[in-house]
Computed example of a mutant assay.
Amino acid sequence: MTEADRQGQPSSNRTILVACAANLAIAIAKGVAALFTGSAALWAETLHSVADTGNELLMWLGLRQSRRRPDPAHPFGHGQERFFWAFLAALGIFLIGGLLSIGEGIRSLLNPEPLDDPWVGIAVLVLSAGFEGYSWHTARRQLQGDARRRRRSLPEQIARTSDPSATTVYLEDSAALVGIGLALAGVALHMLTGWPGWDAAASIAIGLLLTAVAVLLARRSKGLLVNESAPPDVLDRLQTIIGAPPWMRRMTELRAIFVGPSALLVLLTVEPVASLRTEPAERLLKDVDALRERLQGSPAVLEVAVTLIGPDDARDR
């Protein structure tokens, strides 16, 4: 585990725990309101909050699992546990939040029912928006801090970050706030028009929204799990650190993948200058070790491997 990862864990842990506590309270309140009102949109929102609570528990479990030290079976540590549990969380959003909400909306369309005590549902939704807003603000603040440190915009940080925890919570809570708005609209239009279809349509819209969020999160987690290359700005920073040392004729390849949040495995292929090929090997190895140490001094770099090639090998590449 890198120093950057250790520094990022307290904020990720707080973000997850805040979101979990908020969603658990919200799920209970929405469930009670759904029983009182019979609203399909409120049932969809209850399922949404239940899914979010379970997902935050999965993220917290992934955070704990990723803290284990490297061992012979996992020489680069357990950082990718975070990617795996984030992928499971995305599946939870899709199955519990997305598909069940769509199913509830379709059921309500086919078998419409009048609303009972709709003001109870509206009050719970407004209260839920406050809890979700606080959780959303916590996740956004962490993402903005990470984005500033990496000189990225917030959308770039969401798309490129190697820490799925804050991104998952932020997108979940963003979807939750939009979902609450849809549920409020569905209940209000049902009250005004007397047509239950508005409530059912809101439930279906919430399900489609959660399905879209699940796809976004699953795609990012999948990229990290299958060793997708580090983003261009990370490679550019590595290139700046490497520079142009006098012993290096050229670098033919620079590859980097995340083996955990803020934990890079860097692979270099370089051709040394011709004069060093006639010098003692110790001098070249000393230069290579100095380069490795300089790269590993970067907070995000966990391990560096350098491959030396001759001019014939360089032509083959």
Rank of each mutant, 00 (worst) to 15 (best):
P245A: 10
L208Y: 08
A214Q: 11
S221V: 11
V266S: 05
S221G: 02
S262T: 04
L276E: 12
S221R: 09
I242S: 04
E228S: 14
A214Y: 08
S229W: 00
L264I: 12
I241Y: 00
E253D: 15
P232K: 08
A212S: 14
G243F: 07
R255V: 10
L265H: 09
R255P: 05
N227K: 08
R237V: 01
L265F: 11
A244C: 10
L238C: 00
L208N: 09
D236A: 15
P232C: 08
P245Q: 08
E228I: 00
T269M: 01
A263S: 14
L224D: 12
A230V: 10
G207R: 01
S229H: 03
L235N: 07
L235P: 02
N227S: 13
G243T: 06
I242Q: 06
S221K: 09
P272F: 00
Q239H: 12
V273P: 00
A214H: 07
L268T: 01
P232H: 05
I257T: 15
A212T: 13
G223I: 04
L210A: 03
T240M: 13
S221P: 10
A274R: 12
L267K: 12
L267F: 13
G223F: 04
A230P: 05
Q239K: 12
A244H: 15
A274G: 00
M248E: 05
M248R: 10
A256K: 02
T211H: 10
R219T: 11
E271M: 11
L210T: 07
I257S: 04
R219D: 10
T252R: 14
A214D: 10
P261R: 05
P232A: 12
P231E: 01
L276K: 06
L216N: 12
P232G: 09
A212G: 14
A218K: 09
R237I: 01
Q239T: 14
V266D: 01
Q239W: 07
P261W: 00
L265I: 01
N227G: 04
L238D: 03
L276V: 10
P261H: 04
L238G: 00
V234D: 02
S262E: 13
P245K: 09
I242D: 04
P246I: 00
F258N: 15
